[in-house]
């Protein structure tokens, strides 16, 4: 199994985040300690063991029709169009299809086991920059749907993702929390991550659900076309800022 390391780039962002995010000294000390020993490492390790049961990298590469050597770069292109699955899908959905193909019990997309396995598999692409390919028509369509979903105001307060994550309000403060630039924060490249405020491993789509819930947008299910599209959209933002994949991330 490939060892999962926390890349230097992340360390640096976290260190500077200290000032930016106005944490207390106690919080900062905790952050520093957690950086050296990300609590998510155990989940990633668990995910690696679950993945082994499916036949490891060799089986995944075969399933996707790529060589093992190409696998990390290929993983960095997810969510992507997988012809035999007939859709633009996330890595978690690929895992589900592999489980079905092998006659194994399928993990739910929202289950802890799936989160762990997803974290492990995505970490195989650590240090790669995402390579969402908008010249591929299915992926372009998914990106467009994601962008539309991002921009659509809805819910009890009439907010969209863009209400809080548009360029013109990045860095402003929403009730003591500075609003991150999703590209600069490498959001698309640093989830699954350990969320300190939730004391657990969360995926990017799970994080989207958190924002939806907080802002009174109806929470849409993980794995829906819109969620996959949002992930494509947010991954592309990180790609445009050349943020390398760094799993597991560590978040407030």
């Amino acid at each position: 199994m490939k060892r999962v390391i926390l890349p230097l780039a992340l360390l640096v962002t976290m260190a500077t985040a200290g000032e930016q995010f106005a944490m207390s000294d106690a919080d900062r000390a905790m952050y520093k300690e957690m950086l050296e020993n990300n609590p998510a490492d155990i989940y990633v390790e668990e995910g690696g063991e679950l993945f082994e049961e499916l036949g490891d990298e060799a089986a995944l590469a075969k399933f996707l029709g790529v060589s093992e050597k190409e696998l990390p770069k290929y993983i960095a292109g997810f969510p992507r169009y997988v012809k035999k699955l007939g859709n633009v899908v996330g890595l978690d959905q690929v895992m589900q299809a592999m489980q079905v193909e092998q006659g194994k019990k399928q993990f739910k997309l929202k289950s802890g086991k799936m989160f762990s396995m997803l974290a492990y598999v995505k970490s195989l692409a650590n240090d790669e920059v995402a390579n969402i390919d908008l010249s591929e028509p299915h992926e372009k369509a998914s990106y467009d749907l994601g962008k539309k979903t991002f921009m659509t105001a809805r819910g009890g307060r009439g907010l969209s993702c863009n209400s809080c994550h548009s360029k013109d309000i990045v860095g402003m403060v929403l009730r003591t929390q500075p609003l991150p630039d999703l590209g600069d924060a490498g959001a698309g490249a640093t989830w699954p991550a350990y969320r300190m405020t939730k004391s657990s491993l969360r995926t990017l789509q799970r994080r989207f659900q958190g924002c939806m819930k907080n802002a009174l947008l109806k929470v849409i299910p993980i794995g829906s076309k819109e969620m996959v599209g949002l992930e494509v959209y947010v991954a592309k933002l990180a790609q445009d800022k050349k943020k390398p994949i760094a799993i597991p991330g560590l978040k407030r």
Partner: peptide, 19 residues
Amino acid sequence: LTKAYEMPDASKMIEKDAL
């Protein structure tokens, strides 16, 4: 394998939630 994974529909939820 085109149905071998979860892909729930969200479009109706979003439509109903529209502003």
